[in-house]
Design a protein around this nucleic acid. Structure first.
Lengths: 220, 220
DNA sequence: CGAAATATTTAGCCAAAGCTAAAAATATAT
DNA sequence: ATATATTTTTAGCTTTGGCTAAATATTTCG
C-alpha cells in the first residue's frame, strides 16, 4: 500500500520521464506545486522502497516496479475518467479533478471489475490510452495541430493538458475529441493556425492551443 | 473540506449516538481501533470546527452541522455499496471495505450524479437506508430475528454488522437480504433460534447471529 | 464514606509530509 | 579560470494524527 502523496509523486515522475530521461528535483517540485526540498525528501523515501533510482544532484528515474505502479495509477485514473464521462454524464473538463481523488482508491478487484463493467475501454475521454492489467496500452499516432501541415482532413484524438480552463476553451470552440477539421494555413509570424470545422465555420487559434490539440488522419 | 480521519470520527460518533445519547471517549476509540488519548485530541479539534459539543469527562454529541456531515458520508458510503454490488457484481461481503475508501471522495456533484445513475436507490445491499441530498432517509420497520416471535413468514431486510466473517457466514447459510424464512422456535436455554428457509431446509443459529439479522413481515 | 477500579485527560514523543533558510554542488558567463 | 548564478541538498521547524505513561476525574463497592 502506498500513501496518496507517494502515488502522486510516482505519477508525476512517470509523466516527466516521457520528456526528459532523468527527472530533476525542481521540475518535479513544480509539477506537484511543492518545493524542491520536499521533493528531495520524498525521492529518498521512494528510492528506499525500490520504486526509483536516485543520484544526488543529477535526478531520478523509475525502476521497473516504479513504472508498474505508475501505470496502475494511470489505469485507475483513466478508467474513472471514462466512467465519469460515459456513465455519469460529466463534462470532459470536470472529469479530471474528481478522477484525481478516485485514482487513489486501492483495490485491484475494484479496478478490474470497473474495467470489465466499462467494456475494457482503450482510451479515456481526453484521448489518452488506458493501460491494461499488465500495464500495456495502445500507442497512438498523434500530431499536434501546430505541426499538422497536411491539407487532408484531421480528427482530434487527444489533448496535451488537463487544465480546466484549456478544456473549457476547447468545448467553447467545439473542438472535442473525435471532431473533424481541416487546417487552412499556418501563419508564420505568430505561429497561429487557421482551421475549419466540419460545420463550415473557420477561425484562428493560438500557437499555445495548437500545440495542445492532437490530431490524426481521418480513418477511412 | 474534511480529512479522512475527521470524516471517520464523525461517522463513528454518529453510529454510536444511535445507542447512547452521549458518546464516550473509550467507546469511540474502540470503534476506531485507536486509543482514548487520540480520540480526546480529535474530539477537541472537531469541537473547534463546530461539528460536535464536548464536555470533559462526560462525552460528546454531534451538532446539527456534524449530523449533516455524517449523513452525507453515510450517503456516499451506501451509494457506493449499491454501485459495487449492483453494477460491478461485488459480493455483499466484499462491498464494505472498498466503500470505506470510496466514501471519502469529496464531490457533491459526483455523489448526486452517482445517485441519479443508480436510480435513486433507497436501500443499500445490506438493507440500510440511503440518505438523500437533504439527509432524509427511509425508516424501516425491522426486528432482529432474536425477537421475532410471530409464526408468519419473515423477510430478511437488514443486518446489524458489516463484519466480513459475519456476512460470509450469512452467505453460506443462504441468509441474503430479501430471503424468506419462518422461525420454528426459540430455545430458551441458549437463546438459539431454529428457522426454516423457503427452500425447505431448516437449521439452528446462535443468539449472536440472530441478534444481527433483521427481518420484517413479508409484504403482500 | 472512602478505597479501588475505571475512564478521561494531559504531557511528551513519533512519523509523514510539508515548509524556509542556509550550505553545498553544479552550471554559466565574463 | 574564476566569479556569479542556479540547482539541489541539508538542517531544523510545523502540522496532523497517532502513541505511551502519568495525572486526574468519576464511578463503584465494601
Amino acid at each position: 500500500m502506498y500513501t496518496v502523496a507517494e502515488e502522486n509523486y510516482i505519477k508525476s515522475i512517470y509523466h516527466l520521464q516521457r520528456h526528459q530521461k532523468s527527472v530533476h528535483t525542481n521540475d518535479l517540485a513544480a509539477e506537484l506545486n511543492t518545493r524542491a526540498a520536499s521533493a528531495t525528501d520524498m525521492i529518498k523515501k521512494l528510492e528506499a522502497k525500490g520504486l526509483l533510482k536516485y543520484e544526488k544532484y543529477y535526478g531520478c528515474s523509475l525502476t521497473k516496479s516504479g513504472k508498474k505502479l505508475a501505470l496502475n495509477i494511470i489505469r485507475r485514473h483513466r478508467l474513472w475518467e471514462f466512467f465519469l464521462s460515459e456513465k455519469l454524464g460529466f463534462g470532459w473538463e470536470e472529469v479530471h479533478a474528481v478522477a484525481e481523488q478516485l485514482e487513489h482508491v486501492q483495490s485491484d478487484l475494484l479496478t478490474d471489475k470497473l474495467d470489465a463493467y466499462l467494456g475494457f475501454p482503450r482510451f479515456d475521454p481526453h484521448g489518452d490510452p488506458i493501460p491494461d492489467t499488465l500495464g500495456n496500452m495502445a500507442a497512438r499516432e498523434q500530431t499536434p495541430l501546430s505541426l499538422w501541415t497536411s491539407q487532408a482532413p484531421a480528427e482530434v484524438c487527444g489533448v496535451g493538458s488537463q487544465d480546466e480552463s484549456f478544456l473549457e476553451m476547447l468545448s467553447l470552440k467545439q473542438l472535442e475529441i473525435g471532431c473533424r477539421l481541416t487546417v487552412l494555413r499556418h501563419f508564420n509570424f505568430d505561429k497561429t493556425v487557421e482551421l475549419q470545422l466540419a460545420t463550415g465555420s473557420s477561425f484562428t487559434i493560438s500557437e499555445m492551443l495548437a500545440k495542445n490539440i492532437f490530431v490524426k488522419p481521418v480513418e477511412v
